[in-house]
Write a protein that binds this DNA or RNA. Structure first.
Lengths: 349, 349
DNA sequence: GCGCCATAGGTTAGCGCTAACATCCCGCCC
DNA sequence: GGGCGGGATGTTAGCGCTAACCTATGGCGC
């Protein structure tokens, strides 16, 4: 079709085409090509068509690095996370990525070796050095939440799943409300009180769940048993479950997450204390396997995907606010939901 | 110390310092600053010190986008994956990220909406457009493996966890060997044959496990029962388990992954067929929860982290080979390991 | 017919860095 | 002592793109 390009034989596509190659073939300047790409109104339809045809013919792909250099925006966002192997962070990351894709951003990840301040700052630093436009920190631990405030952020940041109470926007599930839901459910089944297997002390989520559990107990006038501290693993749930199985008065347990609940279920089974006949158990998270535990686990669902996509949208708004020089947006809380299954039953004292 | 810089008061750090600012303060050209940063030998120690001091004073951070533009390398690698929520891909991704960090690369992720050819190519395209130096594709499905061959790769690629037999390097766990391990274990316990609950038909892993299971059966002269097809979820394992529980001759089951094994365990429990008393069950993956199933699950461990880090190293070598214009490296297989726990027992017919 | 303004496009200067070459200076050898 | 080699540094020219400004053209009102 284009007789113009006939001068250069199939030898084209040696080195990738750049803007001026397209311009030359279309008989316009490289700037006009840029205008076509960026949708400027000041290009005649006929010219636009010629440029588009030339782009097609040369297989032109815009170079986003050159564009990033000149615009100062890389369309890339960083995510800092600790253990992306766990279901929670993994699903959150997934939600983030989907929302980022929709918003035209890429996600680059920086996982932490350890959960201390230094590595959080180091990760944030590494990302901003690489030129990201904003950073999401999936933070779940007190030290790292603190580290966020120490960090001098060169780009907008949003904390996900937990974070400092002020300073930067936080998007998370309402942990305290979730714990209240779980505790009240057990209380309403007639249990005198509810024991609690917690996550590690430094975990913000664990702390919030403890507060929610405690407040529900206090509000109902129930005694507050000493919490048992685990580490989120099925293993720790198992050992704490063995311990609890010897506590005859323990007929209802609110476990800090589903993995520990699985371990606890196993310990109760071994100890001959049937669930839910003898002991009722509620977990937290609602991992996909929870309905298939023995027995199917009553648990509190956290919508991680929603947390991820919502936090991404907050970050994008924060970036826009930053550019416009206006106030950053607020964070928000995602509501948890109680999933009642077969691991809880009325108290039959 | 530096009287030179006194002209500009604390008003510095308005706009981030660039190389020539550092050079000016140190009394050298911007190129010498570049030499210091890139560790050139042709800089006198005294000069180097002055430059480093100036960098510190101005809080200089090199701009990696500008560097990427001129060198043509962004120090960024792309990872294409489908469901990063599952334990396998999530751990693989984690291993990749750790190894990338060590090798001085960043990881940018592109997750797929669907598992078809189009979305794989689209993701690869999106990543290379963004300027990645290489791409890892966590592929586990026949269609996408094929898509990889269709893709005209502008950058080096490596397939992870599965992929076409030729064309690009593949790093994966030896699925067939893992399936043989599981099947032989059950056969050695005296079971007449071993049933198999498989993953979805299009899954490369599922296919390889079926082949391994079949070959172990044939080699032992055992009959080959019809495989039951699941979809990796605990839910499907549960329903197929219900079906299998009615099959009196089924005393040994090799389940394609641990989640389905969990569902199957639950179905057997409900059907009053004790595991391992009546039925022996072997899973695949060895997810962290497997030891805490009821009963603790015998399963085949896949070292996902090793697959991730090994594939990253192969990709880095592929990039170097690409630049040097030599042949790309070979892929490799990671050995699986049988973890014997309490869900398998000798056949007592 | 002239100025005026809108429209369509070209020209020029960078973004911050590295690669390639040019230059200077010094010691050393014949 | 003069040329020469090589280490230390400066100068120049891009990488591929966008922003800002400039120019040509044409329609329109008076």
């Amino acid at each position: 079709m284009e007789v113009e390009g006939a001068a250069s034989p199939p030898e084209r596509s040696r080195r990738p085409a750049v803007m001026s190659d397209v311009g030359r073939l279309a008989g316009v300047s490289h700037q006009t090509v840029s205008r076509v790409i960026n949708g400027s109104r000041h290009v005649r339809p006929a010219t636009r068509e010629r440029v588009l045809a030339a782009m097609r013919e040369l297989g032109y792909r815009p170079n986003s690095i050159a564009r990033a250099l000149v615009t100062g925006r890389s369309q890339t966002l960083g995510v800092v996370s600790f253990d992306t192997t766990l279901y929670g962070p993994a699903s959150t990351l997934f939600g983030i990525e989907r929302a980022a894709h929709e918003a035209g951003y890429f996600i680059i990840i920086a996982s932490l070796k350890a959960l201390d301040r230094a590595s959080v700052s180091e990760a944030v630093d590494r990302l901003s050095l690489h030129g990201v436009d904003g950073i999401l920190v999936i933070v779940s631990e007190q030290g790292s939440a603190q580290a966020l405030l120490d960090t001098v952020p060169s780009v907008p940041m949003v904390a996900v799943e937990g974070g400092p109470d002020q300073g930067i926007p936080v998007v998370a599930v309402d942990q305290r409300e979730g714990a209240r839901l779980a505790t009240r459910h057990l209380l309403e089944l007639g249990h005198r009180t509810v024991w609690h297997v917690t996550g590690p002390v430094a975990s913000l989520e664990a702390q919030a769940r403890i507060r929610g559990w405690e407040s529900a107990l206090v509000q109902a006038g129930a005694p507050v048993p000493p919490p048992l501290t685990g580490d989120w693993s099925a293993r720790s749930g198992y050992f704490l479950g063995r311990q609890l199985s010897r506590e005859a008065s323990a007929t209802a347990v609110f476990v800090g997450n589903d993995q520990m609940a699985l371990g606890l279920l196993r310990a109760m089974h071994e100890a001959g204390r049937p669930v839910p006949g003898d002991v009722s158990v509620v977990g937290f998270d609602d991992i996909p396997e929870a309905p298939f535990f023995t027995p199917p686990l009553t648990t509190v669902r956290q919508d991680f995907g929603e947390v991820g996509s919502r936090s991404l949208r907050v970050l994008v708004r924060a970036i826009e606010a930053h550019q416009a020089g206006v106030r950053p947006p607020e964070g928000s809380l995602v509501a948890p939901e109680l999933m009642v299954r077969a691991s809880t039953a009325p108290f039959t004292g």
